[in-house]
Every structure is written in C-alpha cells, then in structure tokens.
C-alpha cells in the first residue's frame, strides 16, 4: 500500500451545454477526510465520480491531479449509499469480491478477522438478505477496507441507516479509514461536522471551505462548537433553495 496522496481538482463541468456547478478549485487533503456537502442535485456525486474516474453524463473541462503524479485508478475503493452486496454470495465472499474480480487469491484469514472485529463473525456464511441494513453496510465497509487502498470514495454510505446505526458506522469508518485520503459525499451537515478534517460546501456559486471545529474526528455532534457549525452549514444549504 502506497501512502495516501492529496488530490486537486480544478475546472468546471457541463451537462448538455449547461454548467452543473460554477468552476471549482478544490484540494482533497492527503490522509484526510474531506466532506463534500451540498443540496441535492448540485453535482456532489458527479464531482466525486469525476475524481474517481467513473462514467458520468456531461463534459468536464479542467484538471484532476494527485500530489504524487500517479493516477487515482487502481488505488481507490468505493462505497455507495446502497451496500451493493451480491445476493448470491456469502458475507465472506462479498467481502473479498475485489480480489476475486481481479483474479487474485483473496486473503481469507484477514477477511475473517476483520469481519469478526466488526461484529459479523457469526454471519460469515450468511447471505446478505438474512442481514439487517446496518449489518449489510458493515459488510460493505469491510469490503472497502479489505481493498486496502490509499484513497476511498464514499457516496452517502450512511444515509439509508437509522440514527443510532449511522452514528456507530460513522465511528467505525472514521477509525478504520484513518490515514487514508477520503472523499465523503453527504447531504447531512451533522455527518460532515462529525467526520470532516475539511468541509467543502458545493453550491451553485462553486465550492467553498467551511471551518471545522478543532476536536479530533469522529467528533461529538452535540458539542457546542459542532452544533454551531451544523447550524452555519444548514443556513448555507437552506439559503440555496
């Protein structure tokens, strides 16, 4: 595993000739969580997909570069809002999907150990549909972690979970993805304030940094400075309507 690089993105994106967002200049810090926050439909996911090298509608004009000059492709993992577990595979086989898809021999002992550590030890051979939503998303996190790649793209991975499961998953992810370059797309100010080393608010006017509270992540969402930050972010998001 190489060290986590920083990623800079500079440019603008248009779909069918119409600008999706104003020109952005954005730096995703090395080994840090960058939370990309914005109202829905503003292009957060498109911006993430551009950086991740995934197909998206429209045309991007600009430059995406890493601090070490090597491409993002082959060094990233990806976690989406839906768990994307394969219903015909067991929990264990779902967790090692990356290695299987590359035709490599998966590290099964490591996968078993990780799944046990995140509380899925009793369900290694279960099919995903036998699991709760929170457990399924934990399997998806295990699959992301087992990729052991320096960059992680998280596209609203916790938004479909109930409040207490979401809080637990945020802590687990913050701990296990520490030291990696993470881009988290979210529409939830509380999530951004809890997890971000850097918060980027994407609005029609472009991407702007919002100051984060000084505490270490995952922060207490109910600490006074976090509550104030949430209120400030919410005001920006609502001002967009």
């Amino acid at each position: 595993m190489s060290t986590a690089p920083a990623i800079t993105i500079c440019g603008h994106h248009a779909v069918a000739g119409r600008a999706l967002f104003a020109p952005v200049a954005l730096r995703i810090g090395a080994g840090e969580w960058t939370c990309l926050l914005g109202p829905s439909g503003i292009g957060k996911t498109t911006l993430m997909r551009l950086v991740a090298g995934l197909a998206c509608a429209g045309r991007f004009v600009g430059e995406i570069a890493t601090s070490d000059g090597k491409p993002v492709s082959g060094r990233a993992s990806f976690m989406a809002q839906t768990d994307l577990l394969l219903p015909w595979l067991s929990v264990l086989e779902n967790a090692v999907l990356g290695a299987r898809l590359r035709g490599e021999a998966p590290d099964l002992p490591r996968a078993r150990a990780l799944l046990c550590r995140i509380g899925l030890g009793a369900h290694l051979q279960a099919r995903p549909r036998a699991l709760s939503g929170g457990m399924r998303q934990r399997v998806a996190l295990a699959r992301t972690l087992l990729e052991d790649r320096p960059i992680a793209f998280l596209d609203e991975p916790f938004s479909a979970l109930d409040a207490q499961t979401r809080a637990a998953m945020q802590e687990l992810a913050a701990e296990s993805l520490a030291g990696k370059t993470v881009l988290l797309v979210t529409h939830d100010p509380a999530e951004a304030v809890r997890l971000g080393h850097q918060i980027v608010v994407l609005t029609a006017a472009g991407a702007h940094l919002y100051p984060v509270p000084p505490a270490r992540t995952p922060r207490d969402a109910f600490a006074p400075d976090c509550v104030a930050a949430q209120a400030g972010l919410m005001a920006i998001l609502r001002g967009q309507r």
């Binding site: 995934l54 839906t82 994307l84 299987r100 590359r102």
Partner: peptide, 28 residues
C-alpha cells in the same frame, strides 16, 4: 445495476472475471 458496474470499475476487475462473477450470476 449501475452501482455494480461502478464497483467493478473501481476494483479494476478483469473483464473475464466481471463476466463470470458479476454479470452471469446477476443474469441467472
């Protein structure tokens, strides 16, 4: 499902493996 294609792209799946392990089982 587009999500599965994204996953297999980011994971740098080999085309033959993606066919055998994703597309064919999904289409059964």
């Amino acid at each position: 499902p587009p999500g599965l294609s994204d996953l297999s792209t980011v994971m740098n799946a080999r085309p033959a493996q993606a066919l055998l392990r994703l597309r064919i089982p999904h289409a059964l």
